[in-house]
Nucleic acid binder design. Sequence first.
DNA 1: TTTCTGGGCCTACAT
DNA 2: GGCCCAGAAA
Length: 657
Amino acid sequence: MDLASLNDPQRHAVTHRSGPLLILAGAGSGKTRVLTMRIANLIHHGVEAERILALTFTNKAAREMRTRLKALLGRAPDGLWVGTFHAIATRMLRPHADRLGYRAGFTIFDEDDSRSIMKRALADLDLDPKKHQVAGLLAAISRAKAESRSPEDITGKKASDRALRMIYERYQALSRESNGMDFDDLLLNLVQLLKNDAEVLAEWRGRFDHVLVDEYQDTNRVQYELLRLLCDGHRNLAVVGDDDQSIYAFRGADVRNILDFGRDYTDATVVKLEQNYRSTQAILDVAHHVISRNQERTDKRLWTARGEGRRPVLLLSPDDEAEAAFVGDEILALEQSEGWIHSDFAILYRTNAQSRAFEKALMARRISYNLVGGLRFWDRREIKDVVAYLRFLANPSDAVSFDRIANVPKRRISERTAQAAIAAAADGGVSILEACAAPAQVQVRADAQEALASFAAQVGSLVADVGKRRPHELIQLVLRRCNLSEHYDDGSPAGRNRLDNLVELRELAQSYERYSPAQGLERFLTDIALTAGADDVDGKREQVTLITLHMAKGLEYPVVFLTGLEDKMLPHERAFEEAGGLDEERRLCYVGITRAQRRLYLTSASVRTIFAKTVALASSQFLHDIPPALLDMVELEGHRSHGIASRLRRGSVEATA
DNA sequence: TTTCTGGGCCTACAT
DNA sequence: GGCCCAGAAA
């Protein structure tokens, strides 16, 4: 291993032997390299691979770590535990599901599933399921779980707190009844198991000698507790992160975890990685002026040996359409004059809705693009249907999946009948499949009972195949037995497309089996459930990337357009209401800027179409923090200055009234 | 039971 | 500007 290729702080982080270690890794400072070399170094010094645990937030990061380790070690790092928090937690939980009141083969619910459970919980409690309520309640429960709080920990006396507690309880009861856990449950249940079960705690605490965590600034309370539970024996915890890139507070991430690491572990070694290997100095200077306005941050400043580079461009345009047109034209111009290609460019924005204008502009110019984070493959209706079949086969108590497939294809099973079957199963203490097979107990008309029985006959016959067949064969069986191909193919191009997707699903299962041959249906379903949108972002050939700021974290592009720099867009309107909201938006802006390698464009519009209505916007307050001398300004005709342009022309950044 | 349509309402970011 | 839902119609 080539330790000489590292700079001093990097080498320090890699060779640190034992005890708590905090690596403050600025954007583009080579943290993945440090992390993987650190693991390789441990192995070199005799630590067994299977006694090392590395935790990430995305499968992509885990995969990359594995690949790089393989290159470093000259062989696959067999036995090493690398994975996302959720995947590792699932792996630790599965063998002990019974101790938590779940059965092996429990389903992992996605957000859609959670919504449908919430609706059922509200119906049970005779509450009005107004849509915003559902989303709000789910967010509140998710937040509670991220903070490691059970229903009984919601102790507020306000009516809203009492309601939340009741709904949270009901939601959990229904999930358990379906033998399923949502994303938050995976972590919370594991932590509670470790806290309450000395035997299991001893098992896992003795399992690893070294634990490493990537993106530590994104950890929440439960993840923090999990790390303490696992590491309090040996204290060999190495975390890598950047407080300046903490942008997931909305899902419970707590920057305090990284800011207070030194307080939690008073003997911690702290290493700062400040040399940047990605961007030009001109870009880093802009980034610095934006982020340094935040009060609560560790003190660091990125520098590069790459040279000054071109001054970033600030575009002031009249509206979102002109903004997008400028970006499209600029891409063509740069390709023409400087030889860049499509895949060198990324267009970054705060909200997914902003992608539309860019899609139009790029399409008009025949520039092909890759829209990241649109409708995922796994979110397509036909895919979710077939996956629901598989889930129901693996877990015939799964009410969410049953509800989804009961009448797909049409079996004359109404929503009311389906709910009655679910209720009968719960009352009788049997699985839903069993309830359908013996429908006399289900409180519906005779013809509906018959429909349930024939559903049970059709689906039940497949259950026997679960242990014997591989996932792709099961998919094929489901498609054939239930005539799903006919059901989806209505002769339209859209129908054709759905069939293609189903074929793709089967092929995907096949290649999965080739990749991990020993794994059965259960593991296949787990991996599907824990696959995130960010996992399949890759530089698609010859396409411009359209991506949100959140999804762009960790990525880099030669030319970056950071768009929608207006107050209420970035920073987002909602951020003004929450404590710390503006700091978080500023970090988001910082993340965007630091994605750029060679060229950076900051763009804003004075008028934007939101919800089909035209709204006037002031330029982003973040722009006011950048000294004008650092930027080249382009002001399009029709731009109505709300302050920034004239200030820039005067060369003053003081006035922010 | 299934399909169609109009109106309400939102939408931040996402493992 | 699109999604979801309620209510009507077949």
